[in-house]
Every structure is written in C-alpha cells, then in structure tokens.
Design a protein around this nucleic acid. Structure first.
Lengths: 107, 107
DNA sequence: TTCTTTTATCGTAATGTACCGATAAAAGAA
DNA sequence: TTCTTTTATCGGTACATTACGATAAAAGAA
C-alpha cells in the first residue's frame, strides 16, 4: 500500500459522519443498503450523504452494486484490513528507529 | 476514544508529508529532532513544515519539548497505539453486523 | 550589548471540503 | 406511455487546508 493510498483512506475515515456511515452499512448488512437507507439514519441531506459515500467509495473502502433503481453499498472488509496492516507496518517502522537498514539486510 | 478524536487523528495521518514527518522523527530519535531538522529532509518551506507539525501536535500524535532555542518533537507511540486499538475496535464493530446488542447484553 | 539561530505565526493565494437545494437520468410500477 | 423512486451531480456558499514568503519573539553566542 502506497503512502498516497494510506493517506487517502485515512482522510476518508477522518470524518465522524463517515465513520457512522460505515456502522450503518454494517448494521443493515443483511438486506442491501442504499443511499436513502443511510440518509434516514442521519440528520443530513441526501446529497450530502451521497457525497460522503463517494469519498468512502473513491478511497476503496466500500463497494457499489447496482440493484434496480438503487445503488447498494457494502463494506470492503478486505480493504479495511489492508489499511490496518499498513498502519501496523507504519508503527513498526516508527518504532525501529535509525537502525532500520541493519534489520532489513542481515547478510 | 471518541469518534471526533479518531477522526482528528486519522485526518492528521491523512497527508503523505505528515507520514514522512513521523518517519523522520523516528529516524532521528536518538538526538532530539527539531523543526529545522525535519525541514532539511523535505522539499518544503520551514513555515509549511511547522504547520504540518502543528497538525500532528494538535492531534496528540507528537510531543513538544522546549530545548534552548529549538523545539524538539518526539513521537507519542502511546497515542498511535491507542489509535490502532480504536481502529481494531471499529473493525470489530463493523464485522459484528446487526446482532450487536445481543452480544453486549447476554442477560 | 549586538548578532545569529530557530520557530511560530501572520498575510495571502489557490485549492479542497462540507453542507444545502434543485435537477436530470435511470429503472421499475401503473 | 406516464408516474414514482432513487441517485449522482450541478450550482452556490461557507469554511478549512496547503503552500509560500516575511516577520517578531526567544534564547544562546560573541
């Protein structure tokens, strides 16, 4: 995962409303969840929710499936796990300190 | 960790330059690392780096220590770990699905 | 004291984000 | 066909972010 992708995903998660959208998608995981389903659970206009969904979608954190007149969104758990792994890797790199190159090439 | 704090920390990590600043701080962990030390490692003006550092500081991800005429910054590994735990908790909540309340209150 | 170093902050410009209402396109129902 | 539902996108407003150069304050050196 490149730094740009990590940053994009982090920024997508960097808004409380979008965290809640993920939770809403998780809650209604059984039946497919569309934009209007999310909107009724939030004190925001439909256009605003659609915009937040787009941010999550562009960051690759949710998936879109066209079902009739609605677009159903589901969480991409694989991508969220990837981000978690990338974050763990980042922390490991930060903990190492300046002796990092010795660890990578032990002859 | 509240949603607002998670979002703030995520947003602070949501820029490639700030990821690099953390890595630079980690690399020069031995000797205290100040703003000018970070600046020479980046193709950015000192004022811009100072601003990025402020974002990380305001998010609680780095610590400031006044040492003479310079301000030395160090990584707050505890806060980064907190964020990792919060993220893990978020993922667990998202994986659970709509049966979440049954798990929390098994009588 | 004066000089230098270092940093945060100010001012500014360009760009991005967050919200809203209105609207056009797509798909199903009548 | 016409009507309804749903959604993405457009236009607009307000505010935040990112970048820069310039500058004042603080602390040490001369």
């Amino acid at each position: 995962m490149r730094d740009d992708d990590i940053a994009t995903a982090m920024r997508a998660l960097g808004h409380p409303v979008r965290l809640n959208i993920l939770r809403i998608l998780a809650t209604q995981q059984q039946s497919p969840c569309c934009c209007s389903d999310v909107t009724v659970s939030l004190p925001l206009a439909q256009s605003t929710v659609s915009q937040h969904i787009k941010v999550l979608f562009d960051a690759g954190l949710i998936e879109r499936k066209s079902r009739g007149t609605r677009n159903c969104y589901t969480i991409r758990h694989d991508r969220l796990a990837d981000l978690g792994a990338a974050y763990t890797g980042l922390l490991a790199g930060l903990a190492g300190g300046p002796i990092k190159e010795l660890e990578m090439d032990p002859v």
